[in-house]
Amino acid sequence: MEIARKKGLTTFDLKIIGIVLMFIDHVHQMFAIMGAPTWIDWFGRPVATLFFFISVEGFSHTRNKEKYLLRLLIGFWAMNIGTTIVQHFFSLGNMAIQNNIFTDLFVGALAMYGIDYFSKFKEQKKGKYILLGLVCLLLPLILSLVSLLGLSSGNMALISVARVIPLTLFAENSIMVYLMPVMYLLRNNRKLQCLSIAIVAGLFLFSNIGAAFTTNSQWMMVFSIIPILLYSGEKGRGMKSFFYIFYPAHIWILYIIASIIYNH
């Protein structure tokens, strides 16, 4: 007997929406040097938040959270290595590829892992779980400050930390990655998750109100609420590895195409 599907968007649908918007955003990023209009960038503003939500859902339901973190870490390393190779052979003016969403997702997932340790402390009353939880939450931020100190002092050993370990302040979305553990805490209340997104979007909007519709377009992340509210809670079609391949591949390909055109 076939089980009736819930109405709404599946995880697969959310990923497709995110991938399409992300691709449009990165077309703007790579071709901005050749005059791609600024408004194209607007399509990408909800993307990070949407993938944060997808990650919260994935982390909440995965049977092996350590393996989940390892996949993100391998993605981070692969992205860094591939980007180094691409930029060795191609250049696009003064623009360097700084994209690595695996940094954001790993730091956010590690923070969620830390929250799980706090839950274990609540159940078992063992102090080690508090310590482990704090390490998961704070270590990427502390090491970020150490690596930034290396940048200011010219210490290559400290700078290279960010190439090996995903660090908060080196993430594409910086401190905003901690929206993920907030949504993880609120995972049983979709409306409160959306409210947390709206609050962060409001902070971006009012941080530079005069330029909000132009240079400070991150407030448009609020539009991620629409597909999130339409989410049915169902996984949908399998798409486990596609994102891990598509994300770095499309950035490298767009960069190479833009480089060839720009330097022709």
Rank of each mutant, 00 (worst) to 15 (best):
I199W: 06
Y184L: 05
F204R: 00
H61N: 08
M22Q: 00
Y262E: 09
I130A: 12
Y113N: 12
V182S: 07
G236F: 07
I245S: 03
I16H: 07
A211I: 01
K120R: 09
G114I: 06
L141D: 10
I115G: 04
S259R: 02
F59K: 07
K120E: 11
S152F: 12
G202A: 07
L229N: 03
Y244W: 06
S224W: 08
N216T: 08
A78I: 15
S144A: 04
A258G: 02
Y178V: 02
V161I: 15
L158F: 14
P166T: 14
G93L: 05
V107G: 12
S144D: 07
I33E: 13
F53Y: 11
M176H: 11
G202D: 09
Q29R: 12
T84M: 14
A32R: 06
G35T: 04
Y255K: 06
A4Q: 09
L158C: 08
F43N: 00
L167M: 10
G82A: 07
L167I: 08
S91L: 12
F170R: 15
W219R: 10
L145I: 15
K128C: 12
P140F: 03
R71T: 13
P46R: 03
S119M: 06
S147A: 15
I19L: 12
E2R: 12
I197V: 15
Y247Q: 04
Y68K: 00
L229V: 05
M22P: 01
L132C: 06
L185Y: 13
M22L: 09
K7W: 13
W39A: 05
K126A: 10
N189V: 02
L110P: 02
L179F: 04
A111R: 02
Y184E: 08
I245E: 05
I225T: 02
S91E: 11
L179A: 13
I54A: 12
I256Q: 05
T215C: 05
I17T: 08
N155F: 03
L149C: 11
T84K: 14
L169T: 15
T103L: 07
M156G: 00
Y129K: 10
I225P: 00
R190M: 09
Y178R: 00
A111K: 00
F243D: 00
A96V: 12
N155G: 12
W42E: 10
V161W: 07
F106Y: 15
S144Y: 03
K122S: 13
G114P: 03
F206G: 00
N100L: 13
Y178I: 01
M34A: 02
P248I: 15
F223E: 01
T103E: 10
I209P: 04
Y184G: 14
I253A: 08
F223H: 03
I97A: 06
F52G: 11
G233I: 11
M221I: 09
I245N: 05
T49Q: 02
N155K: 13
I257L: 06
S196M: 10
